[in-house]
Design a protein around this nucleic acid. Sequence first.
RNA 1: CGGAGUGUAGCGCAGCCUGGUAGCGCAUCUGCUUUGGGAGCAGAGGGCCGGGGGUUCGAAUCCCUCCACUCCGACCA
Length: 437
Amino acid sequence: MRLSNYFLPTLKEDPKEAEIASHKYMLRAGMIKQTSAGIYSWLPLGIKVLQKIENIVRDEQNKSGANEILMPTIQSADLWKESGRYDAYGKEMLRITDRHEREMLYGPTNEEMITDIVRSHVKSYRDLPQNLYHIQWKFRDEIRPRFGVMRGREFLMKDNYSFDLTYEDALYSYQKMYLAYLRTFTRMGLQAIPMAADTGPIGGDLSHEFIVLAETGESEVYVDKAWMQADTTGDGIDYGNKRQLGNYYKALSSIYAATDEKHDAANAPKDLITARGIEVGHIFYFGTKYSESMGAKVQDSNGKMVTLEMGSYGIGVSRLVGAIIEASHDENGIIWPEEVAPFSIGLMNLKPVDRACSEACDELYKKFTDAGLEVLYDDTDSGAGAKFANMDLIGLPWQVAIGPKSLEKGMVELKKRKTGEKHEVSIDAITEKLTGK
RNA sequence: CGGAGUGUAGCGCAGCCUGGUAGCGCAUCUGCUUUGGGAGCAGAGGGCCGGGGGUUCGAAUCCCUCCACUCCGACCA
């Protein structure tokens, strides 16, 4: 992408409303624009990152065996009256009335709707297990939205719901998601630690929050130092191997990690780390809470009616954009992990009026693009200093700077954003170096 | 919802106390010069001073009243 043909409204100064790094940088890098408290438009650079994250989440869900669906944002109040949550949910739920005076709502979550879908089509134990997910915008009318997309009112969430015949099967479904989550976050360059968590108003008795440690985290967390060495990548574990997965789950979940509400100082290990964390995912087993009230049942092999065992699993996709920045930035701007970076390379033409320089840049841009690299090419006539500063701000993993000085020697400058290391690389070797990295 | 603030050009702010021609920096546009870490000079455009009501000869400024946004707290992916 040529910058001259892109929409990247960066800001030189910190917007006054932003307090934390991710919020500041998302605004300054032209990723988002606030339209109301906790509600944002996503600009080209922002949506690109959001979609990369979304695709990693989707890919890992698919690999775990879950099936993607899409449920609407607007729901009828009737379903929520059935489960009893229409009255229980409170003011976080945005209630709307349509032209026929029917009570509607903008969905804060989808347990009722998915239960309705499953109960109307799943009648036999042979149809189980089921695990369905969608990635959809939600709305929760938070008392106080803050920190940009980290606590928006409107947010993009991946949520899925498992349906099983027995508790043992449900536990297996739960463990699959536990693994899928670890893999998902690892792929984004994050270490997320699963912590024993409160089940809150959703109910149930088995729940983990996946928490990224960051100074600006919203809650206090307590983790065994052993987590710092633990294998949270789940390498080599097979979803289909129940015993292997169970052992992995057992091993990891026995290492102490707890949020504020669940922390028990008496049973905590000696090597305890107290830190702050950002919740990026949450998994629940809640049994028959919704299937019971909404009549989601199947016949088992004996012809007996059995109420479905359910779990639900959420990942805050839009929140992750902020969480990744919190975990990866410096005083100059964002430092994107390669996998979620909006572009992998920022190519800078340091002297556009110099014909040879511009030609070399155009040529290299074409070579990069042909090689399948995602490039943002700053071909504008702004000053060199401004170009460097902007590239640092938007945080692409690699910067390639071309100016007449180095070009005379047939060289370009390659900079790694994460470390700041700079190398002169010959213009003939640069493409290969970047594709082979 | 309680407490504390802020709304003045696209962004960041001054002016308000003590009423009297609406300002500064950055950004934008034009021209020239520049071009390896947010360039220089010269010129230009851009405002219902958040909205409504009042006081006054006269209101960005004083009074009343809405609204929006931010921060702290209780609540949450």
